[in-house]
């Protein structure tokens, strides 16, 4: 089990990359006492019979790790939804992509902390193998959106330590604005 929701988010975005997504949209919102996190991709998608099995921890399509017989990312998300009286969403169409999401009470005692949002969002934006990644963030009725294409335009290759350091500063400034009194 992941300690934080940020780690869970990273796992879901890695799933999207493994599914061959070209574009991934992430949404992390806290509104009206609810916490909602969604990851949508335009990757390979799954047929209905696979969707039914995808949250079974003892099932995997084996693409990411040939020979491995467990897949835990979606199972963790569903488990979190169940533990927090929340809802879990998994919609997928072969050839069109997949959307996974969690919606639950923001103050539920069993909801893990988000952890380090700056580190998590930077890691999401630096996920390899995906073209565009967009993160839409909202809390305290404030919001921001960051897109990898715009950041690439300014910073170039995000894998350089220089670019990654600047990216951390940029995302931190966005996040601090949300929590500013």
């Amino acid at each position: 089990m992941h300690f934080t929701l940020g780690e869970l988010l990273l796992d879901l975005v890695q799933n999207a990359a493994n599914a061959g997504a070209i574009s991934v949209r992430v949404s992390v919102r806290e509104r009206n006492g609810r916490f909602a996190m969604t990851v949508s991709d335009d990757g390979a998608g799954m047929p209905a019979q696979i969707v039914q099995r995808a949250t079974d921890p003892f099932y995997t399509d084996g693409r990411a790790h040939p020979g491995r017989e467990v897949g835990l990312g979606l199972a963790f998300l569903r488990q979190t939804a169940e533990a927090t009286d929340g809802s879990f969403r998994l919609q997928s169409q072969p050839g069109e992509g997949t959307t996974v999401g969690l919606d639950c009470p923001a103050n539920h005692v069993d909801l893990p902390p988000f952890g380090d949002p700056v580190g998590s969002f930077v890691a999401v934006l630096c996920t390899e193998g995906v073209g565009e990644i967009e993160i839409a963030r909202e809390a305290r009725e404030r919001s921001y959106t960051v897109r990898r294409s715009e950041l690439n335009e300014v910073l170039g290759d995000l894998s350089s330590v220089e670019a990654r350091g600047l990216l951390c500063e940029y995302v931190r400034s966005q996040e601090e604005e949300i929590w500013r009194r």
Partner: peptide, 17 residues
Amino acid sequence: ELEQHGLSNVSLRQTGS
């Protein structure tokens, strides 16, 4: 650590397992 040592041009990448 890389920033502290001024190794700003090292490529720091992330991958799956």
